[in-house]
Simulated scan of single mutants.
Amino acid sequence: MKLGDGVEQAVHAVAMLAALPDGGLLSAAALAEFHGVSASYLLKHLQSLSRAGIIASEPGPTGGYKIAKSPDAISLLDIVLAVEGPEPAFRCREIRRNGPNPMPDGSFTAPCQINAAMLRAERAYRRELGRVTIAQLAREVEASDDGSIAARGCAFVELHMRPSNRQT
């Protein structure tokens, strides 16, 4: 299974927003700069995350993005579904019914066994992504960080964070 680059960018952006102090915002441009990615491409995914209620945006020249709910309540599955959509990765087109000598209707009464196996794998994949939260990932990074990762992020946030104009 191949997920688009937007999933990685979205997960990192959400993780960074989750680490902001209360009332802090980061612009799409700042998030893109920190991760070295295209601002316009990242913006598309930030909008999807906002529509899904994972992050919130404040419009205007001094606006930006912030986390919309607790990092403990945001799973990797939430982010994948926001960016990639809810459709399963494998979509059976029933090609077994095609070909030069098609079988009569009714020959294939059970669901395709290939489709059934792929959907079982999809459920397992989604179940595992649903178990991993942004908060859990942050704790894992913190446990393995010698301080340099945190220092890099804090220095960047100090330069680029904007205050929110809204009460949360």
Results as ranks from 00 to 15, higher is better:
E84N: 00
G23A: 11
A143W: 09
P86Q: 08
D145F: 07
A68C: 09
E122M: 07
P61V: 11
I114M: 07
A18M: 09
Q9C: 02
R120A: 14
D5T: 05
A18I: 11
R96E: 02
P88Y: 01
A56G: 04
P163M: 06
G23F: 10
Y41V: 08
S148T: 08
E84S: 07
G99V: 01
E33D: 15
S57I: 00
A73H: 06
A19K: 13
G4V: 10
H12R: 14
Y125G: 03
L31P: 02
Q47A: 04
Y65L: 05
S164M: 13
V11S: 01
M1V: 07
K44E: 09
L81Q: 07
A39K: 14
S75G: 04
H35S: 11
A117K: 13
P61G: 14
A15I: 06
Q9R: 08
L77H: 05
D22A: 13
H12P: 00
D72T: 12
I134W: 01
E58A: 13
A124K: 13
S57C: 10
S48C: 12
A30G: 12
P102M: 10
E8I: 06
P86F: 05
E87V: 05
A19F: 06
T168A: 12
A124T: 07
V14L: 03
P21G: 12
L119V: 11
N98W: 13
G4E: 07
A124G: 06
P163R: 13
A19E: 13
Q167N: 12
Y125N: 08
L159I: 00
S148M: 00
R126Y: 15
D146W: 10
S144C: 00
R131Q: 05
F108M: 06
E158N: 10
G23L: 09
A121P: 01
I54T: 04
R166C: 14
H12Q: 11
D22W: 06
P88I: 02
A110E: 12
V7W: 11
A18E: 07
A68V: 11
G6T: 05
F34I: 08
I54K: 11
N101D: 11
Q167A: 15
A39P: 04
G4S: 15
G23Y: 09
A138T: 09
I134E: 00
L31W: 04
N115S: 12
V14D: 02
M161P: 04
V37C: 15
L31A: 03
R152G: 01
Q113E: 15
F108R: 07
K69V: 13
L20A: 08
H45V: 03
A124W: 02
H160F: 14
I74Y: 04
Q9K: 04
R139Y: 03
L76G: 02
M103Y: 14
V83P: 01
P71S: 08
M1P: 03
F34R: 15
R162W: 10
G23S: 09
C154Y: 10
G153I: 02
L77W: 05
P111V: 14
P104K: 09
A19W: 07
A150N: 01
T62D: 10
L46E: 07
F108I: 04
R93K: 10
P163A: 10
N165P: 06
H35T: 11
P71W: 04
G53I: 00
T109R: 14
Y41H: 11
